[in-house]
Write a protein that binds this DNA or RNA. Structure first.
Lengths: 225, 225
DNA sequence: GAAATTCAGTAACATAGGTTACATTTCGTC
DNA sequence: GACGAAATGTAACCTATGTTACTGAATTTC
């Protein structure tokens, strides 16, 4: 149980909450953990949903899929993330997003009642929740912008810049296949391939499989806005 | 001042709040109203923003615009709506949306501090705020879906069905020019025009300028999913 | 009700990206 | 290191939508 508490305390929902405060909270609510195996569906799109999840272990993806099987992978959740915060307080029924475990996954579901109890026990939890929800609004608005205005090449440049800002190296490797990357961009794999060819002729970046090399950082910055 | 209170009480932020409760709240916070004229910018995209607005009077549109002047009108706010709720509690700086007054507009800005004061004065306000934020997440997720997977024709069918569900008539008029409608769909006007021609040959709906007639409701339902 | 302005129709052309299909490369496993 | 499976490259073709530019219709303004 201690390990569980430790995982929980790292969650964004419990940011700035001490372990003691968390113990106190856990006395009031009964948590159970759920486990999922890779590719298992945690919550299907358009399924009635009234729980928020805290990811203890593993990676979860949030995808949209249309009737033709086209996939758009909108989000990716890692350990400590809060998943589907809008499920709890919305007046609408459901999200158009399916949550799928990408790896072996453990998470804790919380009901509206449990979250409200936590709010009343500790104000900081509420602020953390509000922040998460607000961040999600902005995240989605930015996704929408990208989806509306960016070409595949634009998306690649933005993606590479974002990775650079994490790794701080001119050369790195990503842990996605081209197929996964194409889902992330919401485009077909051959189209992504074609754009990569064009981009590799540009002299700004160079890619080879999962390897990415930044050749001209100034121009990359400009291309990625 | 009474008229102001009455407008406020209709706002979604004060849903289920009595006028007396509202008077009490207003004693604690100092509200000022802002006025805007048509096409005036209330808040520019990528501008630091830390206020939420309650729309007292008028219509406000939320638009995205790229460097080439392409316009995507994402949202439309009417009297009593809460505008830009994610401004307050997000850890990120700004929204990629510009708020523009569409008509003569009056609104009240609230700071984070003011909203927090209200939360502590009345729990229902907090719930209303949470609901608004959550609804916005779902709204944006649905927009993203539409943007990713719907053709112009799909969008038209969905739009017509949505209007039908409001008017409950097989024949009605919209208050948008084709140009505005094309912005709403995030497409060019000639492309919208072309799609309207195709749609008018389909026998499902018929449009002429701002007039829309539903000819085959069953098929409309199916097309709009 | 004429003139000016905005709005809408439309055509020719350009372009991005999707589709299908197949060849080639790489990777994981024995 | 050989084999099969998965991932990737790539080409030919298709389609939706954008662009530009012009015409004509509808609305507004005086």
């Amino acid at each position: 149980m201690n390990k569980l508490m430790l995982s929980l305390s790292r969650s964004k929902l419990f940011k700035d909450i001490t372990l003691e405060e968390l113990e106190l909270i856990s006395d009031h609510i009964n948590v159970k953990t759920l486990q999922y195996t890779p590719e298992e569906v945690i919550q299907a799109q358009d399924e009635m949903a009234d729980k928020v999840y805290i990811l203890l272990e593993g990676v979860v993806k949030g995808v949209m899929e249309d009737i033709n099987g086209h996939i758009y992978q909108v989000e990716m959740f890692n350990e400590a993330d809060i998943i589907a915060p809008a499920n709890l307080f919305s007046s609408r029924e459901n999200l158009p997003i399916t949550l799928i475990a990408k790896t072996e996954t453990r998470l804790i579901p919380f009901t509206r009642g449990q979250i409200l109890t936590m709010f009343s026990l500790n104000r900081k939890i509420e602020e953390n929740f509000l922040r998460t929800l607000s961040d999600k609004v902005i995240f989605l608005a930015e996704k929408l912008w990208e989806n509306q205005f960016s070409s595949i090449e634009d998306k690649i440049y933005k993606f590479v810049l974002a990775k650079y800002l994490i790794y701080r190296k001119n050369e790195f490797e990503i842990n996605l296949t081209h197929e996964e990357l194409s889902h992330r961009f919401g485009v077909s794999r051959p189209s992504l391939s074609r754009s990569l060819i064009k981009i590799n002729q540009s002299g700004i970046i160079n890619t080879k499989g999962k390897k990415i090399k930044i050749l001209d950082f100034e121009q990359l910055l400009q291309k990625a806005e």
